[in-house]
Nucleic acid binder design. Structure first.
Length: 273
DNA sequence: CCGTTCCTGGAT
DNA sequence: ATCCAGGAACGG
């Protein structure tokens, strides 16, 4: 489940490989594109990749000719670069072939991932991308940016709040649990009960943990790999996620798992109030 | 604002 | 054979 650190790691691994690369051919095996395959391929052929950016969990490929390719990997999506032509796997949905013979494969077992080809304008015309909240690892991200939103969602559980991409961009289930543990906040606390001090701690934990996870090249729990198919290391540093019944690394009491908003939520009942 | 849906592979 | 994993869109 690529979240901000994983998507950023993919961006960093891919950009040096495809910057300046010219697309000579696109193969679409599954309808995961917008517009549909024929138009998608037609518009993308002969375009050059100028740079790759990221917003939240979205990858944004800037192309010449004022076109933008946006990719969301959702749960199991992968974007892998092959220096030479490579055989597609069972779940390879889109292949970009470059002038130098290299290929970029989009594979996604669960087919939740999506690609959009849009003109370069101020907004992308992609609802989830246009409404994204602030980047938690940007300079100047702090509690002032989200304090008003916290006040406007009094009854919302704090975990649901930080998972909401319109409030903060990039957190998913793994990092939401890790961030709440680091700030000593129970995932079911209501926004109205979060103090200013706790909000500051939460923002601080977000920046620290997401940056640390990027340093570790992301969390490879099952499917995630970067643009070179390399796994990350951050799974070795997780303190609560997937650690049900294991001792809390702070107090030694067993980690609990409950459902919050239908999502499994790991936390320490002693350290998180 | 909550629950359901999409989708497949792995666990039970 | 059935359940579960979860990001985001959608319906009530």
């Amino acid at each position: 489940m690529p979240e901000l650190p994983e998507v950023e790691t993919i961006r960093r691994s891919l950009e040096p490989l495809v910057k300046g690369a010219k697309i000579t051919e696109i193969k679409v095996n599954t309808p995961v594109t917008q517009p549909q395959a024929t138009l998608f391929c037609e518009q993308l052929t002969k375009k050059e990749i100028l740079q790759i950016a990221r917003r939240g969990k979205y990858l944004i490929f800037y192309l010449d000719d004022a076109l933008v390719l946006v990719v969301h990997l959702r749960m199991t999506g992968q974007l892998v670069y092959y220096p030479k032509t490579a055989p597609p796997s069972k779940h390879t949905h889109v292949i970009f072939v470059f002038e130098n013979g290299a290929e970029l494969h989009f594979t996604d077992t669960r087919r939740f991932g999506r690609m959009w080809l849009v003109p370069k304008t101020e907004t992308f015309g992609i609802p989830g991308l246009d409404t994204l909240g602030p980047e938690p690892i940007d300079e100047g991200f702090d509690k002032k940016i989200i304090a008003d939103k916290l006040a406007r969602h009094k009854k919302m559980k704090i975990k649901i709040f930080i998972l909401d991409q319109t409030i903060i961009a990039g957190l998913g289930n793994i990092y939401a649990d890790e961030v709440l543990f680091a700030s000593g906040i129970h995932p079911e606390r209501r926004c109205e009960d979060i103090s200013q001090k706790e909000l500051a701690a939460l923002c601080c934990a977000m920046q620290n943990i997401l940056k640390e996870a990027i340093t570790h090249r992301g969390t490879s729990f099952r499917d995630y790999v970067d643009g070179n198919r390399a796994k990350g290391e951050h799974q070795d540093f997780l303190k609560v996620y997937q650690r049900r019944d294991q001792p809390c690394l702070t107090c030694g009491k067993p980690i609990k798992c409950i459902k919050v908003g239908g999502r499994s939520s790991f936390y320490c009942p002693h350290c998180q109030k």
